[in-house]
Design a protein around this nucleic acid. Sequence first.
DNA 1: TCTGAATTTCCTGATT
DNA 2: CAATCAGGAAATTCAG
Length: 422
Amino acid sequence: MATALAETYHSLNIPTDPTIVATNLWLSSPPPPPPHSDPTAPYLSHQLSPISPYQTGSTDNLTVDIMNSASPHHHGYSDTSGDGAVHGMQLYRSNGHSTDYTTPTGSLGCTDIMTTQQYTGERSPDSGIYSPTCHSPSRNDYDPLPLVPTCTGLVSSCSDYLGNEMLQYSNAATIHPPHPAMSYSPSHYTTTSMNCDIPCQPMYSPRPHPYVDSGSPIGQAPQLPMGMMDQTTATCTSMNASNPIQFYPETPSDFYIDTNGPSPPCFPPPPPPFTTEDFIRPHHPPKPNKRPRKPKPPATVDPSEIKDIPASAQLWEFLLKVLKKPKYAYMVSWENQQDGLFRFHDPPAFAALWGRHRNRPSMTYDKVARALRYYYRRDILEQVGGRLTYKFSPRLCKQFSVCSSSSDKTSAISSSSKTAKK
DNA sequence: TCTGAATTTCCTGATT
DNA sequence: CAATCAGGAAATTCAG
């Protein structure tokens, strides 16, 4: 793939750097920046990228450690650059839940996540190091999922969409195609290949953000903060293998970002990927009791979020699959797998996941819960006392071994459950 | 086209 | 007070 990239560069008369290797997205020693950048010039490897309002410094090779934290809502970030700070990361969380984030420099403790939270950096006047700070933007000035429409820097190997109500992590910079005429497919932002011949496609369709009332002057997703990448192996695979969440190493290996001061933009910004309307909470006027149903939106290209779960899977089957995937454990996880007891930790996130699986964008936890309650009478679930806690029935657990980690016979109950009395 | 299963949607009321 | 639970009722989707 490096050969293909080199050929592309050669065809565009773009110098390549021999130190670029397939698994290295970033270089450890950026060359000096040019004296100025020409927006019309070809993208040279040493050109600067635009500086965003959320400029940060160097970027750590972040480890998102959800499973191993004390709380399922706790996310730890490792300081792989070893300087005592976690750099250049933005965290987007829009599920409305309070979360406490801890970094090597201390607890950040953001609590208001009615809007997307952003963790941005502040440069220390002494050390020049950027340290994470917590920024909870107001409802009218937050940054709604800026990565989504630009699909820049997507690493497909950890590209599971965690969703509208879920978490998206980014490091500090944005990948840009090396030339305006080029575009990247998300699938080619792997650690081993880049290709420019497939049109860039947004990973997610633009969607209304549930936490914006109106009037937000959002026209263009802002560029993500830029910073010098101080890791040479900041790849998805370097993350906690049990929690391979979506990750956007934004800077291709052949770009360098100046952290020593403001930099002029070196290429035209991408077209506005969002409109204001994309982020306005859909208005729900008062409805009569018997309301006309909204027409179902056209099916997306692939509504199934988890590829190994058939779109026709029932909710309980979907649940079992999700429960098997550690990366979704922050949404729902076993409380006692032997007993079939599980608990939702992030109900909106799971609802969004289920909704996408079924191409139901308006899915909510309330609806999921209603569907789950129907399982009581079908002896698929049984009632337990705790909030957000459900339990697969002993029949299901015993008969189909779905509650132990041994075998997967979930397909067997599909047919049998169809005979259950309504 | 019809039918039934499995939700999905909306609702009211109770509980935490 | 908000979130969640419980369950009724009706609409929707889809497979057979």
